[in-house]
């Protein structure tokens, strides 16, 4: 960069920054907080004050987020199916490589963790992983929505709603249960029921992880002073990382437990018990 370019850059950027700071300081007094930080946090968890009307049903904002995320993912999938997949080449391009990499990763995870039965497992963990990842990143977009009370609310991540997390955890458990029953009948049922804590642990892990990210973000944005630079770090740490980690954890756990319950039973061949006299004779020989 030449000195002239640097001068132009600083001459534009510095006045913009100064004007923004002045604007922020002067407009701060225009907004009155209608809730304390405790109330904001409580609302973020329980959604008691920000219900949204969905065809007359009062639902949490997370459900609206879930439908939007599903719509976006399905729209993308349809576009890929119509425009990209028919043009796929034997030697893949960049976009094809990304799509194949994602599908291949989940398919490989399903095949390695559950080698005996993995017909739908790959597709299931692919869908769950995509839902968790894109749903968590959806939080960063900050789509505004009107509540039933006429207030504005920013749509959160779908799984920061406990109902969404419970739904995914329970559905995963049912999926594993069905896989176990269809592959090893009663034994599969028994093996799955043995893991009775799985739906609870999965649900609350998802809920806790995503809620914590949302709470930290709420906390940061509650105070004006924290709204500079810090959201970038918080956004990366609590949103992008969570999105990746939670998608990976749920997919891996599902594949692992599915692999365990669908494993065919091998009868153990019992060795005949040695009599005491035989053991003693062996010891003497040694």
């Amino acid at each position: 960069m030449t000195k002239k370019q640097l001068g132009v850059f600083l001459g534009v950027v510095l006045p913009v920054i100064a004007l923004l700071i002045v604007g922020i300081v002067f407009t701060n007094g225009l907004y009155e907080r209608d809730a304390t930080i405790q109330e904001t946090m409580q609302d973020a968890i329980l959604h008691e004050g920000d219900k949204i009307s969905l065809f007359g049903l009062m639902v949490n904002p997370g459900l609206i987020s879930a439908y939007i995320v599903t719509g976006v993912i399905l729209l993308f999938a349809a576009a890929v199916r119509i425009f990209a997949i028919p043009r796929f080449k034997t030697v893949p391009g960049k976009f094809q490589l990304v799509i194949e990499g994602a599908v291949g990763m989940f398919d490989n995870m399903a095949r390695t963790n559950s080698p005996h039965k993995n017909n739908f497992l790959g597709a299931y963990i692919f869908a769950a992983g995509a839902y968790i990842f894109i749903g968590t990143l959806f939080e960063l977009v900050g789509v505004p929505w009107q509540t039933a009370a006429g207030m504005s609310v920013t749509l959160p991540a779908p799984l920061s709603d406990i109902n969404g997390a419970i739904a995914l955890g329970c559905l995963t458990y049912v999926f594993i249960l069905v896989g176990g029953i269809t592959s090893t009948r009663v034994r599969g049922l028994g093996r799955t029921l043995k893991e009775f804590s799985l739906p609870i642990s999965m649900s609350f892990r998802l809920f806790g992880a995503l809620l914590s990210g949302m709470l930290v973000t709420e906390l940061v944005y509650y105070y004006l002073a924290l709204s500079f630079v810090l959201p970038v770090v918080v956004g990366v740490l609590f949103t992008v990382m969570h999105a990746l980690v939670q998608a990976y954890v749920l997919a891996t756990l599902t594949a692992l437990v599915y692999g365990e319950v669908t494993e065919p039973y091998h009868k153990k061949t019992k060795q005949p018990k040695q009599s005491r006299q035989q053991k003693q004779s062996q010891e003497v020989k040694v």
Binding site: E48, N60, A77, A123, I162, I166, L168
Partner: peptide, 26 residues
């Protein structure tokens, strides 16, 4: 604030997503 109706709505949403992704992409 656990609501069974909303859990079912979430389930419906995810089942649609799973079926759609399986057919269209996976």
């Amino acid at each position: 604030n656990i609501d069974w109706q909303q859990i079912l709505l979430h389930l419906l949403n995810f089942v649609i997503l799973f079926a759609g992704l399986w057919l269209l992409l996976y």
